[in-house]
Design a protein around this nucleic acid. Structure first.
Lengths: 138, 138
DNA sequence: CGAAATGGTCAACCAGCTTGACCGCCGTGT
DNA sequence: ACACGGCGGTCAAGCTGGTTGACCATTTCG
């Protein structure tokens, strides 16, 4: 119940922090896409699976991110059908900004609770969430 | 990050539990409405504020819930402009089903963590979430 | 080498929410 | 009393972001 409130506050806080840093044309859903693309890129279907939407929706979103300069569509190194979506320099800058914003949101929580309590909560939650899927829209 | 995963798992679990109990025509967003209506009813604008949407959207949702038999539109006792939205017996039955479903989701978590840890997490989170607003759609 | 499976796109459609306009009741001021 | 601004609620139109369905190119397997 209040788990939802905390999650909502976190997402809103990160989104506000990103906007404050100049990335005003992104929604929280885009952040979930960045999470999947950051490590080493991904294909459209991988992105779709990660976001829990159809591949068409993921492709549309990729279009938007390419148009706004956050993502590049490169040929896939080992499959001529596929295209590898990777972050551009602008995309990486936004990812760093998101990390900063997340730290800003978490800092007052850590101050209020104490480092050991925060660690305990993190450990408790990580012991639970088996799937790790994220559903941005209910 | 994994806070979101836990929240998502909770919502999905409750939704699945409700469907398993025969309420197949409801979405998670409806549950958030029930939370506001349960104590003593609410007006459309109060519901809209609670859900973070416009009053038109809240009114539409109220229409749907009335049509499906979960909510009744009664005249407001002290304001002829307003109408008081209250839960029907079917609405209350669904609320009870949701509570059961929530317990089912939480039980394995409590088993895995221990009661004291769960209490600590609850206390930690409740110390943080000042606003208590819920944004079902990002 | 041919058939089924996979990655991707195009097109049409739909649900849920928004903006804008409007009606009826409240409540305060003069 | 009563006129007028404010508030609760609905109607109508439009948009955004998603879905379903069809299709092409390439890969993979029998």
């Amino acid at each position: 119940m209040l788990l939802l409130g905390a999650a909502s506050a976190l997402v809103d806080g990160i989104n506000a922090g990103i906007r404050a840093r100049g990335f005003t044309d992104l929604r929280p859903a885009h952040g979930f896409a960045f999470v999947r693309l950051a490590p080493s890129g991904a294909t459209v279907v991988e992105l779709a699976e990660h976001l829990g939407v159809t591949k068409q929706a993921a492709s549309q979103m990729a279009d938007e991110l390419v148009r706004k300069g956050y993502v590049a569509r490169r040929p896939h190194p080992s499959d001529a059908r596929a295209r590898l979506l990777t972050l551009t320099e602008r995309g990486w800058a936004c990812t760093r900004a998101a990390d900063e914003a997340a730290s800003e949101v978490l800092r007052p929580w850590a101050d209020a609770l104490g480092a050991d309590q925060v660690a305990a909560v993190r450990a408790a939650l990580s012991a639970l969430t088996v799937p790790g899927r994220i559903r941005p829209t209910w």
